[in-house]
Structure formats: structure tokens, C-alpha cells
């Protein structure tokens, strides 16, 4: 039979890798938020898997619930920040934003 925990763990590693690479390499503020979302989705899957393997199903699931809520709020606040940054500075390119002097 197929080894389901191994498949899910590999998927988690893939998601975390993709999200981490995008977080390092991208310069667009919106893309950074997308990368954070992908990264947290990997963590979410890992939490539920860990709860399932350890036999503490509900602990893993309630932590996953908290992670979903926190992740959504991070996206909301990040998008609001991106909109404000765009409004005040005219760009959402991170490299140009770091070059700005006041």
C-alpha cells in the first residue's frame, strides 16, 4: 500500500520550499503575501498530520484552526499595508522601497 504520511510530508516539504523560495526571491509586495500564504498552508497540513499520527487529533485540528485565522488576518493586514504603500510611494517593489529615504 502507499505510505500516506510520507506522501503528505513530502507535500508539506514541497509547499514550504516553494513558499520559502518565493519569500526570498520575489520583490513584489503582493507576491510576498502569496508566498506567506503558501508557507502557512504547508504548516497547517503538517499540524493536522502530526495530530493524526500522535493520536491527539483535536489538539492538532484546533491549532490548525487558529493558524487559519491568523493566516487570514496576516493576509488582510498585509494587503491593507500594500495598498497604503502604493498610495504613498507609488510602488510596491521592495527594492525601490528600501532605497527610499524618508
Amino acid at each position: 500500500m502507499t505510505n500516506i504520511p510520507m506522501i503528505i510530508m513530502l507535500a508539506v516539504l514541497g509547499l514550504v520550499g516553494v513558499g520559502f523560495y518565493a519569500l526570498l526571491a520575489t520583490r513584489n509586495l503582493i507576491k510576498v503575501i502569496i508566498a506567506l500564504q503558501i508557507l502557512v498552508k504547508g504548516g497547517l497540513l503538517a499540524m493536522v498530520l502530526a495530530g493524526r499520527i500522535q493520536g491527539q487529533v483535536m489538539v492538532g485540528q484546533s491549532m490548525a484552526l487558529t493558524a487559519i485565522v491568523a493566516d487570514t488576518i496576516v493576509a488582510v493586514v498585509g494587503l491593507a499595508l500594500a495598498v497604503q504603500v502604493r498610495k504613498h510611494h507609488g510602488t510596491i517593489d521592495l527594492k525601490q522601497l528600501t532605497k527610499l529615504k524618508r
Binding site: 503528505i8 500564504q37 498552508k41 497547517l44 497540513l45 493536522v48 498530520l49 493524526r52 487529533v57 485540528q61 490548525a64 484552526l65 487559519i68 485565522v69 493566516d71 487570514t72
Partner: peptide, 14 residues
């Protein structure tokens, strides 16, 4: 994975 509640919340919110 056997977590339907979390799946529904993830689908509707995420």
C-alpha cells in the same frame, strides 16, 4: 486526512 471541519473552514476562508 480525516479533518472535515478544518477542510471546510480552509475552503471557505482560504
Amino acid at each position: 486526512l480525516g479533518a472535515p471541519e478544518i477542510a471546510v473552514i480552509e475552503l471557505s476562508v482560504g
